[in-house]
Design a protein around this nucleic acid. Sequence first.
DNA 1: ACCAAAACTAAGCAATTGCTTAGTAAATGT
DNA 2: ACATTTACTAAGCAATTGCTTAGTTTTGGT
Lengths: 187, 187
Amino acid sequence: MGRQKAYCEEEVIEKAMAVFWKNGYEATSVRMLEKEMGINQFSIYSSFGNKQGVFLESVKCYKKKLSCITDKLKASQNGIAGIKEYFYDFQDFSEASHLKKGCMVAKTLGETCDKTDSIITEELMKFSNSLKELFKVNLAQEPGRSEADIEKQANYLMICLQGLSQASRIYTQEQLEDFIETTFKNL
Amino acid sequence: MGRQKAYCEEEVIEKAMAVFWKNGYEATSVRMLEKEMGINQFSIYSSFGNKQGVFLESVKCYKKKLSCITDKLKASQNGIAGIKEYFYDFQDFSEASHLKKGCMVAKTLGETCDKTDSIITEELMKFSNSLKELFKVNLAQEPGRSEADIEKQANYLMICLQGLSQASRIYTQEQLEDFIETTFKNL
DNA sequence: ACCAAAACTAAGCAATTGCTTAGTAAATGT
DNA sequence: ACATTTACTAAGCAATTGCTTAGTTTTGGT
């Protein structure tokens, strides 16, 4: 009973994700979301509770959109080569999404400060840690690596990925590829 | 003639720098600056024009504070070893500054978006590029490196430093050291 | 046909943003 | 001593923030 929604929640959240991806969390206002999602503020709050809710849903959407390359990494059995391919896949993925380059999670994690909502930080860390676990699985496929080595190299890769994400808004595609090549020389 | 200032501009700008360092540009409000600098908004605007002016002056102050380790890098003649030492020096520098870890320039560069003041972006890029030039000088001291190699490796180091700065608010001191070691393994 | 439940529009809320300004206090030149 | 110049306090500005709410439209059950 009652009037039916004039919008699809999944569709509008994809638009919201694009805005967060481009501008981060704080720099994205509800008015911007309203405009970009194409629905009124009332609808936003009725569907997602608050700005934080829109963001958390956007992260889910991002994860889903990224799943094609994370699944590929998960399925790979070729150790470091698989991780390297993930880096390149991520580059394509990031580049394909028009102007909004870099990683949405890395971007918003980077702007974290004291007053940042802990729920948001936790969600981003969860995302980040699950990727790190995938790296560790593939690193373990390489011969002659201790647990400690794997942990170190996984951290190295995560930090490089963070840097790569930031760099993707400044450096050229060619420079970013060079970075990936140099990054994997050290493993 | 006229009343004399009750504060020292250099002193209050150091306080301002600390706030920007911790929170970045956007997340720092003039009220926070007012409180932390210990002077009224009128004094802030009379001394530095506007928020942007306070920030630009803070960047100068940051550069000055960092100069002890950049000068050391500049004086070094030992190629990559000198750069690696710069990374460690920067770690100590970042750690020594209480809670506000990471690099102020990297942090504010990371939050750059479309609507960010271009003057600020330019100033940060200038800072970043001058450091890159120092890296290139030291890289050129190593034997058997083409111009192209040097450029690539300098970019690699800059992106790693960006990642390191971001990571310093999440990872432990030990993990960060491991990162530096891995970064320089095969350079 | 009518009523109730849900979704819409648009105005408005308090709080915060960067910045200004009217009024007052202190210092210096004459 | 007086006038002028500068610095200070504190109130206030319009614009924007995240969020709410009063009033209207659309839907479905009876």
